[in-house]
Computed example of a mutant assay.
Amino acid sequence: MTSERNPTRRTLADGRQIFYFDDAGRTRDHTARDTRELPTLDHSSRMRYDVLTGEWITVASHRMTRTHLPSTAECPLCPTNETRTPTEIPDADYDVAVFENRFPSFASSPQDGAPGTGDGPGDRPALGHCEVMCFSSDHTASVAELPLERMRTIVGAWISRTEELSADPVVEQVFCFENRGEEIGVTLTHPHGQIYAYPYVTPRTRSMLTQADKHFERTGRSLLADVLASEREDGTRLIYDGDHWSAYVPIAARWPIEIHLAPHRDIPDLPSLNDEEREELAVVYQDLLRRVDRFYPGIDRVPYIAAWHQAPVRIDRPLSRLHLQLFSILRAPGKLKYLAGSESAMGAWVNDAIPEAVAARLRELK
């Protein structure tokens, strides 16, 4: 039996690693070999520095050729068996599988002769990691409806991969997330998420760190902890208030449906969770996904992004605080929230949904 600390590790035909995480009480051998003949991996991604914003932009042209909405019979995330072409998962069945992306935005080693204008501060190889995390071997499954034991395995896999990727000296931040729905831009419909290990601290995190630092200098307290305490006391936007976690619609929500889920303790990342927090997380995470799926009558699966905000690996960890941002771009049945001129060009957000009304609706959906 594997565990979050010791998953089964195997190697795919082109040298990429795959990690199998088994549900508690299950024993699998994971001995199937990857028999495919695969081309050499493209590690030519570059990072360009935007001096106007102070942000890094990754250029990864090889991703233009990545697999796009294949048929169920050709899904590369389904298990391999005698009736289908070999996939990214050599085994005939699995619980949770994580593997290095075949079309990564960031690569663990640069490609020799990678194109670019130089290796100066404004242009350098995009070093890091991009992994795909398959939540189930069932092509039609939804994370919200998986058995609780599987959700525990998923939490354990997030923790395990965060720990290992954070140990890489080039990694500055680890981001675990799930995109669900073609409206979001998903190119594979099989239930899966991704893990990015960035070689820099992302713009969103830097903005939050700036605000957290100002708040600490003024009050001596954690900004995100004070936000959570305020939401729990006010209650009008609160959705869930448990022993170790609370969920609420943020007062300045940007998206038509947006939920923040935060632990009651001040902790920086997923590996810092204790056993009780991990257990409650497995329950409340699926509960929130089910509420989102029922938000609009007549729609069974609402498109969403579930994004874990973790502290940077090396800097400002005391200012950071673990939380989940779960949101949907669906503003009404058949209508999407587009990032139009104000949002895309100016970064000035306009939300059509009232956060208190969204919270009230989510509370109804127990």
Rank of each mutant, 00 (worst) to 15 (best):
H192V: 03
H192P: 07
G193T: 05
Q194E: 06
I195E: 05
I195A: 06
I195T: 14
Y196L: 07
A197E: 03
Y198V: 00
Y198R: 01
P199A: 03
Y200G: 03
V201M: 01
T202M: 06
P203M: 11
R204P: 08
T205D: 01
T205G: 04
T205E: 06
R206S: 14
S207E: 13
S207T: 12
S207P: 00
M208N: 09
M208G: 06
M208A: 09
M208I: 04
T210Y: 00
T210A: 11
T210H: 04
T210E: 08
Q211Y: 04
A212N: 04
D213G: 09
D213V: 00
K214S: 10
K214Q: 13
H215P: 08
H215T: 02
F216W: 15
F216E: 06
E217A: 05
E217T: 03
T219Q: 06
T219F: 01
T219E: 01
T219L: 07
T219C: 07
R221K: 10
R221E: 05
S222M: 04
L223I: 01
L224M: 14
L224V: 10
L224H: 10
L224T: 07
A225C: 06
D226N: 10
D226I: 04
V227N: 08
L228R: 12
L228Q: 08
S230D: 12
E231H: 11
R232H: 03
R232W: 02
R232S: 06
R232A: 11
E233R: 14
E233F: 09
E233Q: 14
D234H: 11
D234T: 08
D234M: 05
G235R: 00
G235W: 03
T236D: 14
T236A: 14
T236S: 13
T236R: 13
T236H: 11
L238A: 10
L238I: 06
I239L: 10
I239F: 07
I239P: 05
I239R: 07
Y240M: 08
D241H: 11
G242D: 09
G242V: 07
G242T: 09
G242Q: 04
G242A: 08
D243M: 15
H244Y: 12
H244C: 06
H244Q: 13
W245N: 13
A247I: 08
Y248A: 15
V249S: 11
V249D: 13
V249H: 14
P250H: 09
P250N: 12
A253L: 05
R254A: 15
R254G: 14
W255G: 11
I257Q: 13
I257P: 12
I257S: 12
I257K: 08
I259Y: 13
I259H: 12
H260K: 14
H260L: 11
L261E: 08
A262V: 15
A262E: 15
A262T: 15
P263C: 07
P263E: 09
P263Y: 08
